Computed example of a mutant assay.
Amino acid sequence: MQLIQIDKTRYRKHLNRVIIGCGLALAVGSLAISQTLIALFPDESGSHFHWNLLGVIVTSISIGWALNKYRGHDYMTEVVYVWELKQALNKITRKMAKLKAAGREGDADALLAIHYSYAGSRLLWQLDDNTITMDELAIKQAELDTVAAKYNLTLDAKEYNEAILAKF
């Protein structure tokens, strides 16, 4: 997955609308389903937990289906890109201890994966206005650059491929 610059304003606007839409759909859909089921199948004990739970489950599945169906729509471009980038970075993070150990030994693939992780994290943090941890990331990037220079490696996030994680 290539790192690309996306329009922060458009991303935030679309993400907020998607979140609000999903929240409203969950509230309205689950209430409508559960109230309909309660009206059709009343319980003398007054406990309708199972109907409420079913309403939430059915609505959640419907929202997931709709999000998956429209993930290719132009409106969802930035939202889906960030979601997929977070998944890619999470795969690297799960292997970070092994990657750092191999990187200290000069493994070019490990150093490239770490570099990609830092570059992707920087992009995400800028989109989310999470600038508090940027100084810490800059320190880690400087350490990585020192190790890469020690082994005469040039790291470019464009060269990263998720397949290299398989060996770690």
Score class of each variant (00 low, 15 high):
residue 8 K to N: 12
residue 9 T to K: 14
residue 11 Y to V: 04
residue 11 Y to F: 15
residue 13 K to L: 15
residue 16 N to P: 02
residue 18 V to H: 04
residue 18 V to N: 04
residue 19 I to C: 09
residue 21 G to N: 07
residue 22 C to N: 11
residue 25 A to Y: 02
residue 26 L to R: 00
residue 28 V to L: 15
residue 30 S to R: 02
residue 32 A to V: 05
residue 37 L to S: 07
residue 37 L to Y: 02
residue 41 F to D: 02
residue 46 G to A: 06
residue 48 H to W: 00
residue 49 F to L: 09
residue 50 H to P: 01
residue 53 L to D: 08
residue 59 T to D: 08
residue 60 S to M: 12
residue 60 S to Y: 05
residue 62 S to I: 07
residue 64 G to M: 11
residue 66 A to C: 09
residue 70 Y to V: 10
residue 71 R to A: 14
residue 75 Y to P: 11
residue 80 V to D: 10
residue 81 Y to D: 07
residue 83 W to Q: 15
residue 90 N to I: 06
residue 97 A to W: 04
residue 103 G to T: 03
residue 103 G to L: 02
residue 104 R to S: 10
residue 104 R to C: 10
residue 105 E to P: 02
residue 105 E to F: 04
residue 107 D to R: 00
residue 108 A to I: 00
residue 116 Y to M: 05
residue 121 S to P: 07
residue 129 D to I: 01
residue 130 N to S: 12
residue 137 L to Y: 01
residue 141 Q to S: 09
residue 141 Q to F: 03
residue 142 A to D: 13
residue 151 Y to H: 14
residue 152 N to F: 11
residue 155 L to M: 05
residue 157 A to W: 00
residue 160 Y to H: 11
residue 160 Y to T: 04
residue 161 N to H: 09
residue 162 E to N: 14
residue 163 A to Q: 10
residue 166 A to V: 07
residue 166 A to Q: 14
residue 168 F to I: 01
